[in-house]
């Protein structure tokens, strides 16, 4: 007879895979929207780049089954680094790699918040960027804050979507959009939008 622990570990791994799949499919499903956002203020490749990288992650899911959470995140991060291209590859890749580095096997909410905070710092360093510069950080940081303060899933999802929308009036200071100066004002940042789509899909999967 198999010990109960084994079963619950497997269930946990399956849930993690479901989360990864849902998050990837959510962003892939919005490829056209992300492309349109990036055409407005960038080089128009965010949607297609993310789709390429995430499809590579999805193709890899069978190999991820059963891996400890940290190892799984590192493998996903490496895939994103190699396959996404553009600046979003190293940025999302660094986010996943660092999350993996700081993630215990069965994280508490506090562990998640701490790992997320460390990963956000790594993304800042990778992009030489900070908050309020119209980037994915403007979604990741407030989501981390909600997570740390103990907000429920519904509130975290709402915060992600709100924060992405709140990049609209910001003038871009990093990336291709910064070349547009004031003309970057009035458009949602594509990286902030994809980050919000990830968070929303993760919350929905955990809720369901």
């Amino acid at each position: 007879m198999e010990p109960a622990l084994h079963t619950s570990e497997r269930a946990e791994s399956d849930l993690t895979l479901r989360i990864v799949r849902a998050a990837a499919e959510a962003v892939i499903g919005h490829t056209d929207e992300l492309t349109a956002l990036d055409q407005a203020i960038g080089d128009g490749d965010h949607g297609i780049n993310m789709k390429r990288g995430l499809e590579a992650v999805l193709a890899d899911l069978p190999q991820l089954r059963g891996k400890p959470l940290g190892e799984m995140l590192k493998a996903i991060g490496m895939k994103l680094v190699m396959k996404v291209g553009g600046a979003s590859g190293p940025l999302y890749g660094t986010l996943a790699l660092e999350l993996g580095k700081h993630m215990p096997a069965s994280p508490s909410r506090g562990d998640l918040a701490a790992a997320f905070a460390a990963a956000i710092e790594a993304v800042k360093a990778r992009g030489k960027s900070d908050l309020a510069q119209k980037t994915m950080l403007d979604v990741l940081a407030p989501v981390q804050a909600k997570l740390a303060e103990g907000a429920d899933l519904c509130a975290i999802k709402a915060e992600a979507l709100r924060a992405a929308e709140a990049t609209r009036p910001i003038q871009a200071l990093r990336g291709r959009a910064s070349f547009l100066g004031e003309r970057s004002i009035g458009h949602v940042d594509p990286g902030a939008r994809s980050a919000a789509l990830f968070v929303a899909a993760i919350c929905d999967t955990l809720e369901g």
Binding site: D43, G86, A87, G89, G93, R126, G127, R176
Partner: peptide, 11 residues
């Protein structure tokens, strides 16, 4: 050349 090339190169 542009931003993504720099970020990818550093990576």
């Amino acid at each position: 050349d542009l931003g993504g090339a720099e970020t990818n190169s550093e990576m």
